[in-house]
Design a protein around this nucleic acid. Structure first.
Ligand SMILES: [Mn+2]
Ligand SMILES: [Mn+2]
Ligand SMILES: [Mn+2]
Ligand SMILES: [Mn+2]
Lengths: 220, 220
DNA sequence: TTTTATTTTTAGGTAAATCTAAAAATTATT
DNA sequence: AATAATTTTTAGATTTACCTAAAAATAAAA
């Protein structure tokens, strides 16, 4: 059984491992809002428990058990987010912090029944896939909006930034999950992107465009 | 802001205070499954924070703030129990441990919305009253089944024992909340009680009868 | 009112998770 | 290859929530 803290470390390592093979001490420290020295302490503990493979100065990778544990926490996090949005009418920018706590409730039965209650959802309110009870989920291969060319069409299917400020901004612009879009222009000067929606036209900065995921449904 | 542990102490003191005015160190230790020395440490901390009034060797009482905090945790605990039973189809004997964890999730918004989602329930699956958001609730003045006389009628409205073994036992006998009962006999030898239900007759031990609460609706 | 039993507190210590400051290893730059 | 910069680890402390053993206070019994 893992502590609340150990679980958060495992989840952080799991997410960082999506970008780099060996996860570095400093990267973990930054993500966890803690000091590198504390990370080293915890890494040793996780290594002792067989949850990570660790070579001094070379960073860590999750073991099979460690990875499964992490995926289970991600599953819980995303299911709770769906609950909060679908059942309790939270906005997609309000759920992260609460889910961050709820994900640590230890009851297999609870999460199985919650999954069923929610109708076995495949994605959370931010478009992230929800692993099933065996930890399996489709690796969503979405394109970043920034990579689209003028004329390209697609559907908004996810975001890679979960801050409330960012999500509220998208909400205000009408750029929510499921919306059909088409790129009408890309400004040379600042790289900002002009987007056509069914009912209106909006302009977003390059920075915002980087964090929107699109399932492309047809060129030009 | 209180820690998980501090909240559990406050809740324990609150429940013990329903029986005695000054709550004793040993009573808290027993309830919390810890040692009296640990309780003394925590009591000092809670006193420093202004959550309890404490006189050495004389036990503790909750301050106004301490009491409100405790009631808020009780509210959360009971609302989550309703959620588990009403929405996730848990049995009444399966919910306590999970609620014990869920009650510590810190989000006022969450509990307000959960309350609304559940239809502002007035009692939990064990018949215990749920405080409203201002901490107010009706002091249920139910009679213990053991106090009824032969011929008395009533409705089962609560239990004073939440162990899974006890609740499963009641379930098997058909003695669940809302059931109409009449006392048909009390055995002199062991004090066991014979109960008439709408469709059958059951016999329960004196010990069991002590922990069933009845709203009496008419004598003989 | 002593003596005895019970309850409660103090003293001193441990384990988990954190920190700061300094040393060691690795990586990048000249 | 030597030096500088960065990353990571160690050493030593702190805080929280515990513990055991022993002392002190209170309550009960003789
Ligand atoms: Mn978390
Ligand atoms: Mn999410
Ligand atoms: Mn609890
Ligand atoms: Mn209950």
């Amino acid at each position: 059984m893992q502590s609340y803290t150990e679980e958060n470390y495992l989840k952080t390592i799991y997410h960082l491992a999506e970008k780099t093979i060996n996860v570095q001490t400093n990267a973990i420290a930054e993500q966890m809002q803690t000091k590198p020295a504390s990370v080293t302490d915890m890494i040793k503990k996780l290594a002792d428990k067989g949850l990570v493979d660790y070579i001094k100065y070379q960073g860590v990778t999750l073991t099979e058990i460690g990875k499964n544990t992490a995926i289970d926490i991600v599953r819980k996090h995303r299911l709770w987010e769906v609950f909060l949005v679908d059942k309790l009418n939270f906005k997609w920018d309000e759920v992260h912090d609460v889910a961050e706590e709820l994900e640590h409730i230890k009851s297999i039965e609870l999460i199985e029944r919650l999954d069923e209650f929610l109708g076995f959802p495949k994605a959370d309110p931010h478009g992230d896939p929800i692993p099933d009870k065996n930890g399996r989920f489709a690796k969503t291969q979405f394109i970043k909006l920034i990579e689209l060319k003028i004329g390209d069409r697609g559907t908004i299917t996810g975001v890679t930034q979960h801050s409330s400020a960012f999500l509220k901004h998208l909400e205000k612009l009408g750029l929510t999950l499921g919306k059909q879009i088409q790129i009408s222009d890309v400004t040379d000067f600042d790289g900002s992107v002009e987007i056509r929606l069914s009912d209106k036209q909006v302009n977003i900065s390059r920075e915002v465009a980087k964090h929107i995921l699109i399932s492309s449904n047809g060129k030009n």
